[in-house]
Design a protein around this nucleic acid. Structure first.
Lengths: 186, 186
DNA sequence: TATAATGGCTAACGGAAATTAGCCAAGCAA
DNA sequence: TTGCTTGGCTAATTTCCGTTAGCCATTATA
């Protein structure tokens, strides 16, 4: 994307942009920061807060397949349809091999973060007696990797979104059926 | 990458390249074809041929966790260490949003192909009575997505390869343990 | 041996894109 | 009112890069 295209999109001429930004890199940096902020706010908003220790296990006992499906659907819908977030993800995907910083950003934001969250979640569900005792890290990997892969498919083929979302839902339900256990009676 | 950089890498000057190729696009196409060929040869070489119908189920009864681990290890090792294949994958990753053709190429080669293979494999293992009767498409997704995700991690962080390979092995073994069943006696 | 093809080189061209120079109108402050 | 800052504009500059032109040595071929 050229500086002129950016300028057109804002409705001014390219050289005028230089009254607001030092150069193309500076524009990039500004978008980068803004988007990082927005994304962080969103992920915070949909995360169940995982308490420090195991006091509140009732919350985890109440998790249903429908709840998981709902959460995944909203995450994907937001990731796909928010203009900023969606384009930013593509950009990072494209630029991920450019520098160690961008590699780290990609891994951190699109892999590690979501995975750590689910690792914690499953760990607590295991502690609460509603999930099979398997390595939570591997469970999170098995749960998240398909989600991320299907998200990528939606990025490449938006017209298949419905079909992909169906597969996604089936995946979540299969996962739930495989690993969820009814809580033992107290 | 500029034409001059390509020329440098070969040890000649940029204009000399035009004695061998019509232009930059032509160089791209040549790399493309060559790599497609190599990759195809390799994947053929490690694939168990899945016969048309179910005559040969003994092969599928004999599949062990070790065999799966071995197959995955060799696939990943090849994908990472073959100069051509590795760089080509990065290129397609970067260019995947440029055109419908490249989107389709990425999805086809790095998602659908490997997944169809495992879908067929698991289907036959189910038919052979050595795998739980679950939707083979979802099984393939659960099996492959983590592999592909971890491959991406290796691309971004080659220094973590060993650690990632360990996780990968654990994943394969967990999958095997979860879904593999001993064959019923005849 | 004559000559044609091959594949290297330098120099130069042409276009695209980022950036700078410098002008000017509008709004605000002294 | 006067003058300064802001933010737009056009025109020009610079840089990079793909590509072409045209020269020359080597090698294979008739």
């Amino acid at each position: 994307m050229s500086v002129e295209q950016i300028a057109d999109a804002v409705g001014i001429k390219a050289p005028s942009l230089y009254k607001h930004y030092k150069g193309k890199q500076d524009i990039f940096d500004a978008i980068f920061e803004e988007t990082a902020k927005r994304y962080g706010e969103f992920t915070d908003s949909i995360s169940v807060h995982l308490g420090d220790s195991g006091q509140d296990l009732a919350v985890f006992r109440a998790i249903t397949a429908d709840a998981l499906v709902e959460k995944v659907r909203s995450l994907i819908a937001y990731s796909l349809h928010d203009e900023f977030v969606s384009q930013f993800r593509r950009m990072v995907t494209i630029e991920q091999f450019r520098s160690p910083e961008l590699s780290a950003l990609y891994s951190q934001r699109y892999v590690a973060q979501i995975q750590q969250y689910h690792e914690g979640l499953f760990q607590r569900m295991i502690a609460a007696g509603v999930m099979r005792r398997e390595n939570p890290e591997l469970l999170a990997l098995m749960y998240d990797a398909p989600i991320l892969l299907l998200l990528g498919e939606c990025d490449r083929h938006p017209e298949k979104e419905n079909e992909i979302m169906d597969t996604l839902e089936k995946h979540v339900r299969l996962f739930y059926r495989l690993f969820h256990e009814e809580p033992a009676e107290e």
